[in-house]
Amino acid sequence: MKKNWPLWEIFVRSKNGLEHRHFGSLHATDAEMALENARDVYTRRNEGVSIWVVESKYITASNPQENGELFEPAQDKIYRHPTFYELPDELKHM
């Protein structure tokens, strides 16, 4: 049976001190090939110092249609922000 090359998600750290960021995806037979292909596809101009590859099927994503249930509970908790608190004007820095 014909089997297609699986899809991989590519994350690149552009320099030390920064996080890995999602750059895109590509097809490869295994992790090693995914790394090599990612080097050629996404870092031809020194865009990175480190690459992560994750087979796409292992990523679980939240459903945007459920964004309400998922994120709304944070919306009315304004006391989590510093602007919620009243301070006297004469207090210059806090």
Partner: peptide, 23 residues
């Protein structure tokens, strides 16, 4: 020419996010 191959690949994978396979 290598860049063009790369551009093709960025665009194919962006296109695949719409639920169509590379094949």
């Amino acid at each position: 020419v290598q860049d063009e191959g790369g551009h093709g690949l960025y665009l194919y994978s962006a296109c695949e996010t719409l639920g169509i396979s590379r094949d």
